[in-house]
Amino acid sequence: MGGKIKVKKKTTMSMRRRESLWGLLFISPFIIGFTVFLLGPMLFSLIGSFTNYNITSRMDFIGFRNYEQMFTADRLFWTSLYNTLYYVAFIVPLTAVGAILMAVLLNQKIKGIKAFRTIFYLPAVLSGVAVYILWMQLLSPSTGLINTVLSWFQIQGPAWLFDPDWTKPALVIMRLWSIGGTMLLYLATLQNVPGQLYESAELDGANAFQRFWHITLPMITPIVFFDVVTTTIGAFQIFQEAYVMTESGTGGPANSLLFYNLHMWNKAFVAFDMGYAMAMSWILFIIILILTIINLKLAPRWVHYEGGQR
């Protein structure tokens, strides 16, 4: 009897082992990719941030000096941090509000709504350098479309990318142009809000604004939360816009577009001070981590999940 049980147990074990082997096999592309292309470089940059690594000839341990320099001596660290925070502070709320409003408008049941949805989503399809060049033309102070339209209303538009006070707002406007992707997320969620909630609210005499405020908004808070977290992370990483739209990545007039990542890039590839750049990347990582944790902690106060807390 005992023997028989043993045999049976053995097959389950090997069955389980085989299954876990298969499982490992299937996720191995990710595990290998993660270790080789993500975890490895991350650890390397953590170690590198405590050295004077310059990519080719030196890598001596210098303790916390990179970090110390960043906070005490490097003026551009603070400039770049300020520029980045400014951008994040505008982008995050504006994209959320803008995308929600647009989604609500595009959720109306009117004729041709699909065409509108396509039109407003279209900019999100375009991306990269082509869009920046297009916008550089739109923002041209005298001949650009934006200032031309403003001049119809007797408004003298600013010099946008040439005026340090207007460079960051110009990038914010450019970013808002392509919120179609976020809008799509909201639109999908809006269509999942159960219709009977609106019907009963209407019976109770709630007006359109009350219905939006007390039904729509709470119902889509999980997506708002997701949007806020991801946009924050993305906005902190702004680089391409500034690199392309300022002369060879110099940071624009009076360094007004010297964003954190651009400064980091200059340190790494212009000054070859890769150790310092690595230290900067860890500080950015920590800043984003802290903000994300705060977001997660605050979430239960305002994010409403159907069927209770998750």
């Binding site: 551009l76 005026d163 340090p164 940071g251 007039p253 009076a254 360094n255 010297l258 200059n266 340190k267």
Partner: peptide, 19 residues
Amino acid sequence: APDYHSLLNPNIDEIMLGK
């Protein structure tokens, strides 16, 4: 000071902007 331009240029910009 291989990256001195990023410190010098903004000052020149501000001079040219009259600030």
